[in-house]
């Protein structure tokens, strides 16, 4: 990840390069979203529009499920809010790492902060700037929008075995982002394992978005307590 070539590239191209993995990971999910949207009965415009404007995988699948059940507008929007409120925490963390820039630029790149964009940007060495984040999220975004449309129009997904294999892609990416940090800082391992275990308990009683928030905050607080004890 820290090859010499990368440090010489301008921020935008570094972002494009780092975003390739996300683009690959999004492909099967977006294809599946397009296909499912077609089966739900919404139009191609709605499908591509949802990916274009909302750009949030889990909540888009949930919206399709709720639409199919005939759920009301307010409930669908509220459920989306519940699932996506976790990004508040992720943006707070990105804000710590972001280089000082105009609010306008921040408002633009804020749109692209999905789980995956957050994961790649926040594990990057050093700070993050708008050019890097534009490149990174542009890759993720194009893959998401284009493949949603292809999934709808083609009406078929990838071959079953490959599709099944591709379901690991984003998890493998998260692991690939975590391991270099784990090798460097022991606290990264503690934080990740604690959050994973807490999340396993919290998903039993909370909606998935809140479970992630609770597990993340819980692990970070526990880390603080332990560090205080050690002092």
């Amino acid at each position: 990840m820290t090859s010499r070539a990368q440090t010489q590239l301008p921020g935008f191209l570094q972002g494009i390069q780092a975003g390739l993995t996300i683009a690959i990971g999004y492909m099967p999910i977006a294809l599946a979203f397009g296909l499912l949207a077609k089966n739900t009965g919404i139009s191609l415009m709605h499908t591509v529009g949802m990916s274009l404007f909302v750009f949030a995988g889990a909540s888009q699948f949930m919206a399709l499920g709720l639409l199919a059940l005939g759920t009301g507008t307010v409930e669908i929007i509220f459920s989306t809010f519940i699932v996506n409120i976790r990004h508040l925490l992720m943006s707070m963390s990105i804000n710590e790492k972001a280089v000082p820039e105009s609010k306008l630029r921040k408002m633009v790149y804020a749109f692209g902060i999905t789980d995956e964009v957050f994961a790649v940007a926040s594990t990057r060495e050093g700070g993050v700037g708008s050019h890097y984040l534009y490149g990174l999220s542009l890759m993720a975004y194009s893959s998401w929008v284009i493949n949603s449309g292809i999934g709808y129009a083609a009406g078929t997904a990838l071959p079953p075995a490959f599709q099944q294999g591709m379901s690991i892609a984003l998890y493998a990416m998260f692991i690939g982002l975590l391991i270099p940090s784990v090798k460097k800082y022991r606290k990264a391992l503690f934080l990740a394992v604690t959050a994973g275990l807490l999340n396993s308990l919290l998903v039993l009683i909370l909606p998935v978005g809140w479970a992630i928030i609770g597990a993340t905050i819980g692990a970070v607080l526990l880390m603080e307590l332990i560090q205080k004890e050690e002092k």
């Binding site: 925490l89 800082y185 934080l191 990740a192 959050a195 994973g196």
Partner: peptide, 11 residues
């Protein structure tokens, strides 16, 4: 937060 969030996103 990133390390904790990654743990929760994975598991």
């Amino acid at each position: 937060i990133p390390y904790a969030a990654l743990g929760a996103l994975i598991f």
